[in-house]
Nucleic acid binder design. Structure first.
Lengths: 99, 99
DNA sequence: GAATTACATGAATATATGTTCATATATTAG
DNA sequence: CTAATATATGAACATATATTCATGTAATTC
């Protein structure tokens, strides 16, 4: 009823904005089922490694993914269950649409 | 596991992109608890009526809100339960954060 | 019909954003 | 130390986006 605090609105908007780009969405989806290396994300999504890296930085800063180095490669995965739920929910929801 | 169809990715990204702007988020939040007139949304959110109208058009096109004219005013509300869930979920989730 | 209220629309603009290309850093192998 | 692989970073640029201002339309009141 009473409007949300401005800081909270901005936090939510920033999160959604990150999800609002197809390239980043594909990257996130690629990280849904366990850790994946940056190069593999690039191959899976069709985006250049540089672009993937740029976007992973943004996703990392927003705590949507977490990265861990294993010798040469860096493996990324979705940060927590809430984010996974968010993504699987909207996937399921849009799968049923025809409009 | 197999990547999502491109059309679905684009649909989801488009939806999230709309939610990724603070002004539109405030407008949507204002529509969460029943129909509200455009002018009232403007007052509640602090945005100009013109800006509210522009954004309502986008939200309407994406079927995030529905509008109905009652004599002079046009009342908007969130389109369905799924969208309300989405919003209340993330509100609850971000309310607990401190980072 | 003229005036008023409430909303919608179009053009214009300043700013933000996604992407590429070139280059840097880190880790391992010879 | 040199070479090679994997990722990160910075600058540059073209495009997209949010916002404003001016104007248009729709419904009502006098």
């Amino acid at each position: 009823m009473t409007p949300l605090p401005d800081a909270q609105i901005l936090r939510i908007a920033e999160t959604y904005k990150l999800l609002g780009d197809p390239t980043r969405l594909r990257i996130l989806m690629a990280c849904l089922n366990g850790p994946v290396a940056v190069g593999d994300i690039a191959r899976l999504t069709g985006a250049s490694p540089s672009l993937v890296s740029h976007n992973l930085r943004l996703l990392r800063a927003a705590r949507l993914v977490r990265g861990e180095r294993r010798t040469r490669q860096v493996f990324y995965e979705t940060a927590d269950a809430h984010i996974r739920h968010m993504l699987t929910d909207i996937i399921d929801h849009t799968a049923e649409e025809q409009s």
